[in-house]
Amino acid sequence: MNQSPTATDTPDTEHDGLRRRLMAGGLAAAALGVLGSRTASAAPNELSAREMELLRFAQLLELTARDLYDAATAAGAPGPLWEAMSEQHEAYAQAIASITGLSATGRNDAVYDAQVDGFRTDSVLAAHALESAAAATHTELLAHITQAHAAEVIASIVSSESRHCVVLADVAGLGTNLDINLINSADPLELP
């Protein structure tokens, strides 16, 4: 059975060359489309060097809080609540690690050294001051973070640390003091 020759059977004519060039052009356009779409979707998710620096600062602050709660526990502070607080700050540091790729290790030695004696002697008030400062610092950080997901993570930490402040005020016997509970009068730490 004979069939009329198809385009693939024909020699490499001028027409066929044009077709091939069009196909190649289409592939190039498709490749550009893929690259373009990747660029478009990746842009909002990229963290600038400045944002990475700020998030690392926040991460170190969380690791410092963890170490301070651990120091208070080692010095005899009541166990379960302090252990829970330590674990939560560790989780915050890990969450920042997940969005930055920065390992959750180290701490802010300046903050730790300034606070550790307070945590060992009067841990409740020292912890309240630290949580207040951390919440204020992270709130300030939001003004410098453009990536939505990173902002969501930081906002969730702000929310939780604000709740920590209320718990610590209650443990300190100040649970009915409206100003202490409802107003965060702490200044944010100076951002790097």
Binding site: A135, T139, E140, L142, A143, H144, I145, T146, A148, H149, A151, E152, A155, S156, V158, S159, S160, S162, R163, C165, V166, V167, G175, N181, L182, I183, N184
Partner: peptide, 29 residues
């Protein structure tokens, strides 16, 4: 907290979370 993810301007996020933190404190109290 939820709207932080939908808000585009970082300064607006900060101002929203100032109030969000207060709401969290009232809830916790």
């Amino acid at each position: 907290q939820f709207l932080v993810g939908l808000t585009t301007e970082p300064e607006h996020r900060r101002q929203m979370m100032l109030l969000g933190a207060s709401a969290a404190r009232r809830s916790a109290m």
